[in-house]
Amino acid sequence: MTTILEVAVQHARDVPGCLEGGADRLALDVDGRSPDVATASAVLRASDRPVRVRLRLADTYTTTGADLTTMVQLAGEYLALGAEGVSFGFLDADLEVDVETTLALAESLPGVPWTFHRAIDATLDPRRSWRRLVGLPGLTAVHSGGSPQGLEHGYDELVALAAADPRIARLLQPTGGLLAEQVPWFLRAGVRQFGVGTEVRPGGSLRAYVDAAMVRSWRTLLDDLDQTEAHDRRVEP
């Protein structure tokens, strides 16, 4: 299975670096929230790769019925423009995954692949949160750094979770400060999706556009590790 490299973008000017560098999928949001339709349209016109667009209206992981209706409408517009899927995720007041609301939105978009974003890192019990997510319809990826502070603090826990449960490994997309030296260990645990953002922007700044050479370095790393793993499987006795 080819390893997926997803690159976070904020506007159409980020797209050329993703395409030239060999990204497999783009994740679009603007400051963590849903982009306006014009921004989404510009990105989708510029990209020939799958794009998942964020559904999040406010700087909170809780939502209301009215917000949910708005997000369903927004999703319809994004999909009509050519989005491959969407990303979203909701927590309740107890910082647990809000399965009811998350499921309601997923079921309103039948057949649409979606990502549960890093809301999972804000939950009180990540292991319980993963149990609630595994098996939800349409879910194909979960962004996680293993900690609200990202992979610098959550890496060990995430590798252990993936190694212990192939369902988690299949869904996990490490993101939030990914380091090249962490990738082989995630691969050995069965992870096949990776997300980068500021890692492919000069100076790690969101003011800088996605850089093709930096994306290419990640694509090359993943391809080389894929080839090494395939070789190792062939020579096993």
Rank of each mutant, 00 (worst) to 15 (best):
H117S: 04
Q182H: 12
G135Q: 06
D14G: 02
L5S: 04
Y209P: 00
R188E: 14
A164S: 15
T70E: 14
D223G: 09
R201L: 03
D125F: 09
A12T: 12
V215L: 07
V53Y: 04
G190K: 06
R132D: 11
V97Q: 03
V30Q: 05
Y209R: 15
R219S: 12
G197K: 03
L81V: 06
A27R: 08
R13G: 11
L225N: 04
F90P: 00
V7C: 08
F194V: 08
V183T: 07
R118I: 02
L103M: 12
G85R: 00
R45F: 10
L151Q: 00
A213R: 13
A104D: 10
A42T: 06
V51A: 09
G21R: 02
M1L: 11
L57A: 09
T2Y: 09
R56A: 06
L161R: 12
R45D: 14
A40C: 08
P35G: 05
W218T: 00
F116Q: 01
D14S: 04
D156H: 13
L91T: 10
L19E: 13
L74A: 01
G138E: 05
V200A: 00
G22V: 04
G150K: 01
T101V: 14
G177C: 07
S147A: 14
P202D: 09
R33D: 04
D24A: 10
P148T: 12
L57H: 07
R45P: 00
R25P: 03
G21Y: 01
D67P: 00
V72R: 15
T64E: 09
Y78P: 02
P184E: 08
R45H: 13
D48Q: 13
L57S: 07
G22S: 03
E181H: 13
R56Q: 10
V196S: 02
D211L: 09
L95K: 12
R216N: 08
R25I: 07
D59T: 11
L139V: 11
T198S: 15
W218I: 01
V112Q: 05
G190E: 08
L68Q: 11
L109I: 07
D125E: 14
A119R: 05
V200T: 03
W130I: 02
R132E: 11
A122P: 00
G65M: 09
E107L: 15
T69F: 13
A164I: 08
Q10W: 10
L44K: 03
M214F: 01
L187R: 15
T2A: 14
G190D: 06
W218F: 02
I4D: 08
A66H: 09
I120W: 01
E152I: 15
G138A: 09
F194Q: 04
T63K: 08
L187C: 11
P174D: 04
T3E: 05
R170N: 12
A12W: 10
D226W: 07
S41P: 01
V43D: 02
P137C: 04
E20W: 08
P35I: 05
E236S: 14
V200H: 00
A80Y: 09
P16G: 07
T60G: 12
G138D: 06
D92K: 05
G65C: 07
R219A: 14
R33M: 14
P16I: 10
L172D: 04
T175D: 08
A160W: 09
Y61L: 14
G22Y: 01
G177F: 01
T39N: 11
G204F: 09
G190R: 06
D67W: 06
T123L: 07
V235D: 10
E181A: 13
